[in-house]
Design a protein around this nucleic acid. Structure first.
Lengths: 336, 336
DNA sequence: CTGTTAGCGCTTTCAG
DNA sequence: CTGAAAGCGCTAACAG
């Protein structure tokens, strides 16, 4: 099929080894020969067969990235893919290929099997379902792994999560200054670890502020439609919060639009704090106050963590701090 | 390192060949043996080394996806990644792996070299720069290729683009009914093929309607910031259009927000038609009228086209029709 | 500096 | 139905 080092060895009437060494710039080859080999290699249209080379070297130079169905929703709303470019950046710097798996890859094979078959040297998981059994299998393997937005303790697993406590505490602090006492929380769906984590934070902080009320906790699914829908339900409540913290930028957009369509003024009537701090938040009407998660750097950081694990065996537990970016979706409550 | 078929052959005291055949369910092996082999394989924690198997089979079972820097902008605004999930879906159905390359992969190697080295069986290009020389190299190779949003004629290349003519014609038709005569166009940056294509359509259609004015053509870069910025420039114009067609949803959001911040009412003062029809358009304030591109199905379609090319050698030139989705960002012009 | 030999893990004739 | 032998394309000892 394609031209091999054997072909160029034959042409030049030298050994295959010499060709291999020349192409790989080994020191024990004369510069002239290297030149000659490289030139004719190019002329003959040779390209290295990485598959063969990976086999002999017992090194795949490949990592796997799993983008799972935490958000089984349209791509626009799937933040999972946003992490990929950062991962690609650091992988390429390390001369590694990236192969991407998504939910469809998983007909009958486990995450680990997929990795092993390809002899992947490490893997990054985005949107891993909360409490999946697969995690045990993964943690028992020695495979270097990075989990994004999921906390788990195992020697071969590094994790990178956002610290939901501080973001939510800052929100309460801010909302309190605006005289809010009824603060609601709209969570994402159960399959996401972040939902569990954010809910815990919300409970903890609201109790700390003596503002806890379990009737103020609602569930959504990160989608924009669900946010819109919720506005109806919320407005029919007997005892409605005056402010909401909403998990997920898309849900916030839907919710705000829902309120607006019913002539509820945001922020005059209801205050809203979103999560994620999408760039769009600043361009929405009203501009959305949001808990920022540094979503842009997570991809890159996760890649770096993976290679740190692969190369140095160094496990990390990265916690990114969250900020409250104040814009215009909150206001002093009228009848606190 | 890991367990091989040799190991399990030794354990079972049978030949390596027998193991291989049993594992691959070849007909010339007894069912009992198959059972036994598979069982002990599992027990010993065997997983096939696809690297070795790909080498013998001379088949990589891999496609490459290039997500290029057409949008060298934050991920949120990069529609490139949205296509990936569709591609993954059909690749997995075909038992192919997907390896993703981005701009950083390209230090010194050409797209084609990257593909060849990995013996990739086909490739999909997203955001290929307009008029790049690499395209010639690609077209001279026999590699099956699909180009998204780029038209090019070559036997090994299928393309999938949106038909910008009809979308823009529908826009003109609609705007004309609203009595607009000064219709502006805000284009994306030059590197994108779609910019070239949409500009051509705009010129063609505006001439057809006798509404062409070259001073009504502006350039942006698909980013949200640039859209915002443009609002200043536009408002200082002596002869300002009463309606704009804007290439790129993000730019639209920025532009609208820019106008709003200067107390320009959209749509009362200025009408706006966007491109892309992001889901968010319907939730923005005002709801954005947009040219729809079926962005959700492009990924899947491109994957199907690629496998059609790989398996059947069938080249396609897919043109997706565009619709005008009317919402609330256009209104009858005051002093037409 | 160059070449011979062996082998990575798997599949595939082909002979039994 | 089973196995011995050869080989995919490349690299790494080791000997010259």
């Amino acid at each position: 099929m394609s031209v091999t080092i054997k072909d160029i060895a034959k042409k030049l009437e030298i050994s295959i080894t010499a060709v291999s060494k020349a192409l790989n710039d080994r020191p024990d080859i004369s510069d002239e020969l290297k030149e000659k080999v490289k030139k004719t290699a190019k002329k003959m249209g040779y390209t290295k067969n990485t598959i063969a080379s990976r086999l002999v070297n017992q090194k795949s130079n490949t990592i796997g990235v799993f983008i799972l169905s935490r958000y089984k929703i349209p791509n626009e709303e799937n933040t999972g893919f946003s992490f990929l470019s950062g991962i690609l950046e650091v992988s390429n710097k390390n001369n590694f290929d990236v192969i991407v798996f998504s939910t469809d890859s998983l007909e009958k094979k486990s995450y680990l099997e997929l990795c092993r078959e390809r002899r992947v040297e490490g893997a990054i998981f985005i949107g891993l379902e909360y409490n999946t059994k697969q995690l045990e299998e993964l943690s028992q393997s020695k495979l270097p792994i990075v989990l994004i937005d999921y906390k788990y303790d195992s020697p071969n697993i590094s994790t990178i999560v956002s610290d939901s406590d501080t973001g939510i505490e800052k929100s309460f602090n801010y909302l309190k200054k605006l005289n809010h006492k009824k603060i609601g929380f709209i969570n994402g769906h159960n399959k996401a670890y972040v939902s569990y984590q954010r809910l815990e934070s919300f409970k903890k902080i609201s109790k700390k502020y003596n503002l806890y009320n379990e009737n103020y906790i609602f569930k959504s699914d990160f989608s924009i439609e669900k946010g819109y829908e919720l506005s109806n339900m919320l407005l029919n409540l007997d005892d409605m919060p005056t402010a909401f913290i909403v998990s997920g930028a898309m849900t916030t957009y839907g919710l705000v639009k829902g309120f607006l369509d019913k002539n509820i003024n945001i922020p005059k009537d209801i205050s809203i704090i979103s999560y994620d701090n999408f760039k769009l938040d600043a361009y929405f009407t009203p501009e959305i106050t949001s808990i920022s998660q540094n979503i842009d750097i997570i991809g890159k950081k996760s890649g770096e963590a993976l290679f740190n694990l692969i190369n140095n065996g160094k496990k990390e537990e990265i916690v990114l701090n969250t900020e409250l970016i104040i814009r215009k979706s909150c206001e002093v409550v009228r009848n606190g």
